[in-house]
């Protein structure tokens, strides 16, 4: 009690702490790492520990020199590689998002319309894969897709094909992997949105002359717009930086910005350039994140 009173004298109260906690979290896990990465992105590469030069340096006795190197950023525009990688990542993320929406919407819809008891089971099944590591799951896909993998063997056994299909290390495999991995991120917000839906509206629409599909198109779809947007952002934003799945399932020609960043960091040991790529990626994604935020705000305000 005494300590509480003591803390309050400094304006620290339990409630204040609760409010401050998210900010503390953000500071610790977003702002600080971001500032560090930003700092590295402005420094010069060095063969040392750490492998970049400090921004601040004592020169002479009383003077502190700041050396900010913008070349790491300029460099990214000298070679088409980086632009192409960005564009390609966005393309892959976009296609993946569309596929996730096409697969995920009906699933979310089905779950939202099922009985409450089944609903929990279905949601559990959607989340279940998260209990296993992403890597293991992607490896499982390799087992399914490879030349003598499950899918090919089943197809050959059924007599559909004679020669194994080349599935693995193709864009197809990559999209399968991404869609599979990110689907829950679409389904969950989509479900949360559809679950709030007043299904009587569909009855009202049918009563006013809509066939079920018309009612879906005119009522359900526009009303679930925020859910679609939220789910899409949750898929799109991380998918832009996705690297593991294209690396494991896609062909070698899948040029992703995540891979380029990896190469910069590990192959070239160019931490500053890698950081610059990361910062640019962030800047690129900020508009999408802000959009997502506004969609979320609208969604929780309940206005459609």
């Amino acid at each position: 009690m005494k300590t509480a009173a003591y803390l309050r004298r400094f304006g620290i109260s339990g409630r204040g702490l609760v409010v401050a906690l998210p900010y503390l979290w953000l500071l610790l896990f977003f702002v600080v790492p971001f500032v560090i990465v930003l700092k590295i992105s402005f420094s010069d590469i060095d063969l040392a520990i750490p492998p970049y030069k400090p921004l601040l340096e004592w020169v002479g006795k009383n003077s502190l020199a700041i050396k900010v190197d913008f070349n790491n950023y300029a460099f990214l525009f000298t070679d088409r590689l980086y632009i192409n990688a960005f564009l390609n990542s966005i393309k892959v993320a976009f296609i993946s998002t569309v596929l996730c929406a096409l697969v995920g919407y009906p699933m979310a819809y089905g779950i939202a319309r099922s009985k409450p008891a089944t609903r929990n089971l279905l949601l559990l099944l959607v989340i279940l894969p998260f209990w296993t590591s992403l890597l293991l799951r992607v490896y499982a896909w390799i087992g399914l897709l490879k030349a003598n993998g499950v899918i090919n063997n089943v197809l050959i056994w059924m007599g559909v094909i004679n020669e194994p299909l080349t599935l693995l290390y193709t864009p197809f495999a990559m999209y399968v992997g991404i869609v599979y991995s990110y689907l829950p991120f679409f389904i969950l917000p989509m479900y949360a949105n559809l679950e709030k839906m007043d299904w009587q509206l569909l009855e009202a629409a049918e009563d006013l002359g809509c066939r079920p599909w018309q009612a879906f198109y005119k009522i359900t779809l526009p009303l679930s717009r925020n859910g679609i947007l939220a789910g899409s952002m949750l898929v799109f934003i991380p998918a832009v930086g996705e690297f593991v799945i294209p690396a494991l399932l896609g062909g070698p020609n899948a040029l992703m910005i995540g891979r380029v960043l990896w190469d910069e960091f590990f192959s070239n040991r160019a931490w500053p350039v890698a950081s610059a790529v990361a910062i640019l990626l962030l800047i690129l994604l900020v508009p999408f994140m802000m959009w997502y935020q506004s969609v979320q705000a609208r969604e929780s305000a309940g206005a459609r």
Binding site: F29, F30, V31, V32, P33, F34, V37, F130, S133, L134, L135, V138, Y139, S181, Y182, F185, L234, I237, P238, G241, E242, F243, V244, A247, L248, G258, L261, W262, F265, F266, A274, S275, A278, L281, L282, L285
Partner: peptide, 28 residues
């Protein structure tokens, strides 16, 4: 190979973790 990706993933989180507060990945 498997661990390569694990470590890469870890690294990606290190570098980009700040970017993706929504990061999809578990902890490997």
């Amino acid at each position: 190979g498997k661990h390569l990706m694990g470590s890469v993933r870890r690294m990606a989180i290190l570098v980009l973790g700040c970017v993706f507060t929504l990061s999809a990945c578990g902890n490997h």
